[in-house]
Design a protein around this nucleic acid. Structure first.
Length: 876
RNA sequence: GGGUGUUUAGCUCAGUUGGUUUAGAGCGCUACCUUGACAGGGUAGAGGUCAUAGGUUCGAAUCCUAUAACACCCACCA
């Protein structure tokens, strides 16, 4: 059956994906081969595919498919992340729609809802990855809340606690009043927002004087416990040791002195609210100030807020400003730009809040991870510029707040048995906890019911930081076959936005629990932006629907489109026209095959000599390109690798090889040529397969009947053979001659059908592929001349070869002269630039011999060219 | 405020330790061609004082300094 003239991706994608799955090509088990392992950055379980996923999963699939073809035991472990805050927020929102408040449910009831949600939407994204062609070992799919994964996390928590690295502390944390949970520093996004700087007068006790403080948050004065001045501030020397009265609350508070105060900012006088500002808290501890918390969990005012109790902080801000104004103590309200911390997930403005939280000490843990990246390079960051960022963060690392006031996640395995500060134990199970608690409390009568487990769950990243180990069960059984075989993994492909959240922490846990790096290379992709350079986001609505792109262009085309412009670490400005280019490329390959497939074959003819020579050339060209492609892969320059192949196929294979080999219309091709051509085409399909898996498999299978062990994705990646450079340069000269003649035809408006005779002032041995030259340039004969023929005609040069074509007097001498003169001018300019160097004594004495030689050759070539041009001009 | 990076053709980017580059690719653009694989095609062409200003050097897109614009990271002065 003849092939359709256009490649229709929709007809083949599902078919081949099912075929690959059926034959278990993606599955991996430890064996004698060398492993090549990638663990997927687990997407949020209820997430949907977006451009960022498409990009980094395409890259992973390219790497995995290539490794598989190169004979590695390729293992790509897929999975999803429970994403505690993101998922919980979605579930809470859904319940709200149904009129249910989270707080009306018990923990178990809520978790049941969350699991329902997870079962409903969970894994949709993994199905979408299949549409993209991702060859993950789906039997290994993991979820961070799977029982065994959960157990690993708990085990690690207990272990780190027992090592003294996890502690419970009353600290100032980032509080998200909407999600009612703490956030790590990394989850807080600072946004510049307009606000006001309020100048408020505080009455000095026993004096008529007032001190004026400046604040952006007047509502917090309800929690003020001091006013602070700089000890050397001359303006305020007389206030030392005095007290002031907080307006509205009429509380008497001390004036303290501290060098922390910036005399230049505001009035140089600072109000101190230890409960609601990290710096104030530090001051408070230093000066032993009282701590007055004025907020509830949702950032409404508590009983300390007096008549503002129950009202939201921002409502109170306005109302309190009014009240201060009425009292005559609000002296000024000026515009002020400042950075406000907001929650990455809920966008709520963060409230610094004091509370009991669990922390992981990071400084010691981070040390091996710093060395691994900066010293030993056991982990290479690609591109390397991220090393600086990494160092900066790691060297200033702070303790990690790992507790979250949420329900969706691993519940912290701390069990309280009394009201005392230390009346708790940490254990992997309630039973074990009871044992420990009885011991610690010295009370054998303690019962299971007397234990209360900590209500908080662990930060999501506290489970994903173990991902490369826990997916192989390496925490609970550190010596199992799988972890020993697959770990350390080879490449990790992810976005730089989670370098600290995730990558750095995986390196840390890798050294802590395996004594080895979790992966050797980290390929950091760029962010996908739109044409205008804006980050793609749901809010802007500028992110194309990933699945629609696949259905519009085909998965292969989308992969090519993404790869064409995504150097590691550089953001990529995505435009759907790139997918069109990918689709065009797919179609080009499709039609190349259709051409070959449609020829009649002469089974008795021997191999044509033209065919043989040009097939030899293509083979050399293929190998030369393969060397380049391998080098690009080594350096993770995947878009360059693809571009090299794109040119190989489009230009070398289609434009030159196929055009050269193509038999005259209706004539057959000899069988040996066709066979060799097909085998070269198969090589093309192999190297393209990682980029365009569906199209290549379709053509591969179409070429001949293949058994299940002969699928393209499990075929052998070609090994570059030694390349005969001379055949490549010789062919290159021929192509230039062909272009020269074509250009000549165009200028003179000579149709391709009209054969011309070509005179070359050269020896026949200087030029190769004479028959190719004739066929592709429409030349009926080549004459090899000692000098330019004296007959009427026109001349042009290709490199140093003068080409002459006889014409019947209709030479446009003016045109010709103009062109020649332009060329002459360029050549003279070029010569001048070369001579400028050669005439410079210091150049000759300082530059290396090799460079001088090159310049001398350039000079000689230029002179020769000028002579030729002048001769041609004189004969006009 | 501190740091890192970017700035090369209309667009997106290469340009490897300064010297075969009076700068390359892909796309786009222009002209022409095209009834035998593909118009999603072919051939040819136009297009850049390599952000700006200095400096180092025999020689700078490449190294140094300053400036500007943009991007990202870190900090969070009320």
């Amino acid at each position: 059956m003849p092939l359709a003239s256009k490649f229709d991706a929709s007809l083949v994608e599902e078919k081949w994906y099912a075929y690959w799955m059926k034959n278990n090509y993606f599955s991996s088990k430890p064996d004698g081969r060398e492993p090549y392992t990638i663990v997927i950055p687990p997407p949020n379980v209820t997430g949907v595919l977006h451009m960022g996923h498409m990009l980094n999963n395409s890259i992973q699939d390219i790497l995995i498919r290539r490794a598989r073809m190169r004979g590695y035991n390729a293992c790509w472990v897929p999975g999803t992340d429970h994403a505690s805050i993101a998922t919980e927020a979605k579930v809470v929102a859904r319940l709200k729609e149904q009129g249910i408040d989270k707080n009306d449910l018990t923990r178990d009831e809520f978790l049941k809802e969350a699991w329902k949600w997870t079962d409903e939407y969970g894994g949709v994204i993994l199905q979408q990855l299949k549409k993209l062609g991702c060859s993950c070992d789906w039997d290994r799919t993991k979820f961070t809340l799977d029982e065994d994964m959960y157990a690993s996390v708990i085990q690690v928590f207990v272990d780190l606690y027992n090592k003294g690295l996890i502690y419970r502390g009353y600290r100032m944390v980032n509080w998200d009043p909407e999600a009612k949970t703490t956030l790590s520093d990394e989850e807080v996004i600072f946004v510049e927002k307009p606000g006001f700087l309020y100048h408020i007068a505080y009455q000095v006790e026993g004096s008529d004087e007032q001190v004026i403080i400046a604040t952006t948050r007047p509502e917090t004065l309800l929690g003020d416990t001091a006013v602070c001045i700089h000890p050397e501030d001359e303006r305020y020397q007389h206030l030392k040791g005095k007290r002031v009265v907080v307006p509205i609350v009429n509380r008497s508070i001390p004036i303290i002195e501290d060098e922390y105060v910036d005399r230049e900012f505001g009035t140089g006088c600072l109000k101190v609210t230890p409960a609601h500002d990290i710096n104030d808290k530090t001051l408070g501890e230093k000066h032993q100030l009282e701590v007055i918390d004025i907020f509830n969990e949702d950032a409404s005012l508590n009983a300390n807020g007096m008549h503002y109790e129950g009202k939201d902080r921002f409502v109170v801000r306005k109302e309190i400003a009014n009240e201060l104004e009425q009292l005559g103590v609000l002296l000024k309200k000026e515009q002020h730009q400042h950075n406000v911390g907001t929650s990455e997930r809920t966008k709520a403005i963060i409230e610094p809040r004091l509370s009991d939280q669990w922390f992981l000490k990071m400084e010691e843990l981070a040390k091996p991870a710093i060395d691994a990246v900066l010293q030993t390079e056991e982990v290479a960051l690609v591109p390397a510029k991220f090393k600086n960022t990494y160092r900066h963060w790691m060297e200033n690392i702070r303790d990690w707040n790992i507790s979250r006031q949420l329900w969706w996640g691993q519940q912290i395995p701390a069990f309280y048995f009394g009201e005392g500060k230390n009346d708790f134990v940490v254990a992997v199970s309630p039973e074990k906890a009871l044992e420990l608690a009885r011991e610690k409390a010295n009370n054998p009568n303690l019962m299971q019911e007397d234990l209360r487990q900590d209500a908080d769950v662990l930060d999501t990243w506290f489970s994903s930081w173990l991902w490369p180990i826990s997916v192989f069960d390496g925490i609970s059984s550190p010596e199992n076959e799988e972890i020993n075989y697959y770990y350390p993994t080879q490449d990790l492909v992810t976005g730089p936005d989670i370098l600290f959240f995730w990558v750095a922490r995986m390196i840390i846990s890798g050294y802590e629990y395996r004594n080895e790096q979790p992966f050797s290379n980290v390929y950091l992709t760029g962010l996908v932006r739109d044409k205008e350079g804006r980050k793609m986001s749901k809010q802007l609505g500028n992110s194309p629907d990933a699945l629609k792109l696949i259905s519009d262009f085909g998965a292969d085309a989308v992969r090519v489109g993404l790869m064409l412009s995504s150097a590691a670490g550089n953001d990529l400005l995505f435009d759907v026209s790139l997918c069109q280019q990918g689709k065009n490329f797919a179609n080009k390959i499709w039609n190349a095959y259709r051409l070959i497939d449609g020829w009649e074959v002469d089974n008795n003819a021997p191999m044509d000599t033209l065919n043989e020579s040009v097939l030899n050339w293509y083979e050399a060209q293929f190998n030369a390109t393969l060397v380049i492609v391998e080098d690009h892969f080594e350096k993770y320059r995947i878009s360059d690798a693809l571009m090299a192949l794109y040119k190989l196929i489009w230009d070398d294979f289609c434009s030159w090889l196929l055009e050269a080999v193509k038999p005259a219309y209706g004539s057959p091709i000899d069988a040996p040529s066709l066979e060799r051509l097909k085998s070269l085409f198969e090589q093309n399909l192999k190297v393209l397969h990682p980029f365009m898996p569906f199209l290549t498999e379709e053509l591969w299978q179409n070429m001949q009947q293949r058994s299940s062990s002969e699928a393209l994705l499990v075929s052998t990646w070609p090994k570059a053979k030694d390349v005969d450079e001379s055949i490549i340069s010789s062919f290159e000269l021929t192509t230039k001659l062909v272009s020269g003649v074509r250009n000549f035809r165009k200028q003179r408006n000579i149709s391709f059908k009209e054969k011309i005779t070509l005179h070359l002032v050269a020896k026949a041995s200087q030029v190769g592929f004479h028959d190719v030259l004739c066929k592709l340039a429409g030349v009926d004969a080549i004459h090899w001349e000692k000098e330019t023929p004296a007959t009427s005609g026109a001349a042009f040069r290709v490199e140093s070869i003068e080409c002459f074509i006889p014409l019947d007097g209709n030479v446009d001498a003016e045109e010709e002269r103009k062109k020649l003169e332009e060329e002459l001018q360029y050549a003279k300019g070029f010569l001048a630039s070369v001579r400028k160097k050669l005439d410079n004594e210091r150049f000759v004495s300082n530059a290396p011999e090799k460079v001088i030689e090159i310049e001398r050759k350039k000079e000689a070539d230029a002179l020769e060219k000028i002579a030729l041009l002048e001769k041609s001009l004189s004969t006009l």
